[in-house]
């Protein structure tokens, strides 16, 4: 196990820069998730960690050693790929044993390690099967098994659950996280699914267009997003963003004065963006009127899209609401949970 340091790492293809100098550290045994929309550079960064892509500039250290020019085979990392990348001509047991055989491990050691991984992942009955005879979930477990038998310094995961169906994904999510905690191996996990990142990671690195937007623990990102992008990316349904103007008592949006915990005094007169999560809106007779546009009952909660002061927003309620499109309801906002962002730069205010 080892810590990982990423210092001013840049990547460009020909003259096209795709990663513009990112830096962060991963502690020994930590589970860090790289998350962001497609094309943000998260997979490229992971591949640079693995040694499958050259590093254009900057340095990557694994366990204190700079690995920029170390080929993948000498980095002591294990990678799980999106499409599992199993060796089609080898059985499950042979797939898992491959790295050990390359290391010239003894037959007994190979048997022990493969057996242990198979027990952990519940693959014992499948050891003689070929990858083509397995379901998606089973293949995913074999790919995990192949990583486990290595007992590497670092696990690298490249969207390993994205090809599974929703139900399996949830159970594999919990299994993978429990497994990582049990093995205590430093892990970097790339995903575009913020729920996956939120539920599994110790810390999340949010990336966009080759730069890091924010690094923090899952709930830190949820509670104090550093900018509009993170605010919109973390949390589902996404945070509502309303345009307004700061005043002494709150944020003025049309005729409404919305409460905000922050020091609106100092911002007074400034155009700001007011962010409120759907779950921080409540129905109350003292509230401001809003017209219901769409109702979406999901069972566990009711989501409403409403129009208020000329702007649309989504609200989520734990209780069932019997509102119909066209109805007028009255809403209050929880000022302690409101976020303010600069209108020009999109960065968080105070």
């Amino acid at each position: 196990m080892a810590s990982v340091e990423i210092r001013d790492v840049k990547k460009s293809y020909a003259s096209l820069p795709v990663i513009h100098g990112v830096s962060f550290d991963i502690r020994d045994g930590e589970f860090v998730s790289l998350v962001g929309p497609s094309g943000c550079g998260k997979s490229t960064l992971l591949r640079m960690l693995a040694g499958l892509e050259e590093i254009s500039d900057g340095a990557i250290r694994i366990g204190g050693t700079v690995v920029n020019d170390v080929p993948p085979k000498d980095r002591d990392i294990a990678m799980v790929f999106q499409n599992y990348a199993l060796y089609p001509h080898m059985t499950v047991a042979e797939n898992m044993a491959f790295s050990l055989k390359l290391k010239k491990a003894g037959r007994e050691e190979i048997g022990d390690k493969v057996g242990r991984a198979a027990r952990i992942l519940n693959l014992e009955k499948l050891l003689d099967r070929y990858p083509r005879q397995l379901s998606g979930g089973q293949r995913q477990r074999v790919a995990m098994g192949r990583a486990i038998v290595r007992d590497p310094e670092v696990f690298l995961f490249d969207e390993p659950l994205s090809n599974l169906d929703a139900k399996l994904r949830v159970s594999m999510r919990a299994e993978s996280k429990a497994l990582q905690k049990r093995l205590g191996t430093t892990t970097v996990y790339v995903t575009h699914d913020q729920v996956e990142a939120m539920t599994m990671a110790d810390r999340i690195v949010v990336m966009r267009n080759g730069v890091i937007e924010q690094i923090g623990a899952p709930l830190e990102l949820y509670d104090r997003p550093a900018n509009l992008f993170v605010a919109g990316f973390i949390g589902s349904p996404a945070m509502n963003i309303l345009e307004g103007r700061a005043e002494a008592g709150g944020i003025r949006i049309g005729d409404l004065l919305l409460p905000a915990e922050m020091a609106t005094q100092t911002l007074s007169g400034k155009s700001v963006l007011y962010g409120i999560r759907p779950e921080h809106v409540a129905i109350d007779d003292s509230g401001a009127p809003a017209e219901v546009i769409v109702t979406e009952p999901t069972g566990s909660e009711t989501q409403l899209v409403v129009r208020m002061a000329g702007q649309e927003l989504t609200c989520a309620f734990r209780e069932r609401i019997a509102a119909m499109p066209g109805d007028i309801i009255r809403l209050v906002f929880d000022g302690r949970q409101a976020h303010l962002f600069d209108k020009e730069s999109g960065t968080r205010l105070p």
Binding site: A50, G51, L52, P71, P72, K73, D74, R75, I77, A78, M79, F81, Q82, N83, Y84, A85, L86, Y87, P88, H89, F98, S99, L102, K103, R146, R150, L156
Partner: peptide
């Protein structure tokens, strides 16, 4: 499958071992 070849490299295979154990089969 390029991923399988990359997986072999991560698994510790040299170029020759990738050819011998992955590409040729």
């Amino acid at each position: 499958d390029g991923e399988a070849i990359e997986a072999a490299r991560c698994d510790g295979a040299s170029e020759w071992q990738v050819i011998r154990h992955i590409k040729l089969p």
